[in-house]
Amino acid sequence: MFQTSNQRLGKRLGFTLIELLVVIAIIAVLVGLLVPAVQKVREAANRMSCSNNLKQIGLALHNFHGANSYFPSNLRPAQNQTVRMRWLTWVLPYIEQDNLFKNYNQALNWSDPANRPVTSVRVKILECPSSPSSTLLDGAPDGTPAWAPIVANSDYAGIYGVHPSLATAGLVDVAGTTRGAISKTQNLRMGDFTDGTSNTLHVTESSGRPSIYRQGRLVVGASATARVNGGGWCRPASEIPYLLGTDATGTSTPGPNAINVTNGLDYIAAGGPASTFYGTDGTSQIYSFHSGLVNAVFADGSVRTINSSVGIRALARMVTRDGGEVNND
């Protein structure tokens, strides 16, 4: 009797193989549950960080308006009527990058070697943390050589207007290439936003440029032959030239799909610098790496998310600042 109970106790001192396997299996299941959750939390945090970036940009635009009574635009600077200066360069002092702004020579182009020590600097709040941003630099199609990598990228862009072909196709109510909240033809004042600042999209995302992404997949890593014209934070061509939309695959324009289908069209395939459609403007489209939405700052300074399923008609109402449409979304 005693011996048998001792033997039993002796047996209990180790784990059996089955017991070990069960424990390992439980741990595996727990890890399997936890890892995707951690990934989701990371993405949620990145998205919040991105909307904070846009909030800072929105505040900077309003602080600029407060000091100058107009919003910065992509006009030609007073010192040189052959170059353009992007609005993001103008708001540098309002996002605590005053030193960059002071070193930027407005009489020279952004691509000028004298400006490159400024324009090649990556600015953290101009990059969305969800974007697979690399150390890849952006360049100009007419540089030597073409697309020579010289300037740092940004994932944020404004929109000049809505392409008139969308109105002909019946996909939007009101079109106009200069109706957007960011302009290259005039310095906009608050009074120019007759649709109401809270109804007008000011700056949104066009992530991952100058590489071409379609529906989350890298299609073409930026190369000399195929890429989005746009990306560099100092480049006026990084603006989205028109709300244009694409087909469901993001390969042809115009079309009814405008959000998160592609981050831009292949500039060279569209004719390159000699293109009669884009001219020297960019080929970017609205795009983010957040699932199912893009962040946007509106002209009243509020940051909102726009669902990918929002139709191009409702989106065009947000893009135009003086379209006179009723926006119920």
């Binding site: 000049y160 008139p164 072909s165 290439t177 033809t185 610098p273 009669t276 001219g279 020297t280 403007d281």
Partner: peptide
């Protein structure tokens, strides 16, 4: 079929002409 051919007034201009 409708055909429109919008071309920037100048290569670098914000305005387009059909």
């Amino acid at each position: 079929v409708t055909v429109e051919w919008y071309v920037p007034n100048k290569p670098d201009d914000g305005n387009v002409t059909n």
